[in-house]
């Protein structure tokens, strides 16, 4: 197989990786600081897609970007509510109980979506500017939108890196992820910080949902089809590690791409094989935070 084909697939795989990163970055930050395995993170991603569709079709003349921004705000508000009302009650409880609580969010949000939006598939059009593709040598096409997703992933990764490492807030989040007691010792309003971080995670999930819209059938349950992959990424990368989520997203995305090209019959098992291999050699993920 020629080299140019491999590079081509590498870029194709990267666009999937970056979508995965957009979703998993939010989860890993929440999980790292709040120590809550938010099983409903995929459902927030679904809501991002639904809200984008809704704003795109209900506001006259709304562009894709405007719709996504509004959708992200809406998902952020829902995230704030989830953190402020039910989740706050169970911060000191076991992971199992927290999982069950976030699972109940999935049930409620899925059914509420079904009630308001129906069960028919919805489809978000690719914005006109990005609907085309570049033709590469060998008569291969590179969709503009795939490149756009890669760009979005990189920009978000850079902004998150800036935010986490260069601002006071980010340093607090980092310190809190490594050691909870330190936050209260510093006299920080911990509950407010937690709400803020949960909203940030929800916003990232909502953004990913909106951006995934042009690639997907928007439907109830689309969150559940991806959540296990996202958890796998967070765990492989190391809970709370942004760098870990970034690297693990690339691993999963590229493994999926090249796996399908070379070993298509194992496609269902790729992610799980990766999880097993990584965790058996690195029991706390690739990048451990401590």
């Amino acid at each position: 197989m020629e080299l140019s084909y491999l590079i081509y697939q590498l870029i194709i795989g990267l666009s999937y990786s970056m979508l995965l990163f957009l979703i998993s970055s939010g989860l890993t930050i929440i999980f790292g600081l709040l120590n809550i395995p938010n099983f409903a993170h995929g459902t927030l991603y679904m809501l991002g897609a639904y809200f984008t569709y809704f704003f795109l079709h209900s506001l006259p003349g709304a562009s894709f970007v405007v719709a996504i921004i509004l959708a992200v705000i809406a998902v952020g508000v829902i995230g704030a509510f989830l953190e402020y009302v039910p989740l706050r009650k169970i911060y000191e409880r076991s992971h199992a109980l927290q999982l069950l609580m976030t699972f109940s969010f999935i049930l409620m949000l899925d059914d509420a979506t079904k009630y308001f939006a129906g069960t028919d598939f919805l489809s978000i059009a690719t914005p006109k500017l990005m609907a085309g593709s570049f033709t590469l040598p060998g008569d291969r096409e590179m969709p503009v939108y795939s490149l756009f997703i890669i760009l979005c992933g990189l920009v978000v990764a850079y902004l998150l890196w800036l935010g986490l490492y260069k601002t006071r807030l980010g340093k607090l989040v980092q310190a809190g992820t490594a050691n909870k007691e330190m936050l209260s010792a510093l006299g920080i309003n911990v509950p407010r910080l937690f709400t803020l971080v949960f909203v940030l995670g929800a916003v990232l999930a909502g953004l990913a949902g909106g951006l995934a819209g042009p690639l997907k059938a928007v439907s109830v349950g689309m969150g559940e089809t991806i959540i296990i992959t996202i958890f796998a990424i967070v765990i492989v990368g190391g809970v709370g590690s942004l760098k870990g989520a970034f690297i693990a997203s690339i691993l999963v995305g590229e493994l999926n791409t090249f796996g399908v090209v070379f070993f298509p019959s194992f496609a269902m098992a790729f992610t799980y094989i990766l999880v097993i291999l990584v965790l058996l050699t690195k029991p706390e993920g690739l990048f451990r935070i401590k």
Binding site: R140, S265, A267
Partner: peptide
């Protein structure tokens, strides 16, 4: 001949392989 798992998120590798 290609087969994709139910609920696959990313069809791009299948698509490019079919085109290839």
């Amino acid at each position: 001949e290609s087969y994709s798992p139910f609920g696959s998120q990313d069809y791009k590798p299948y698509i490019t392989a079919l085109l290839e």
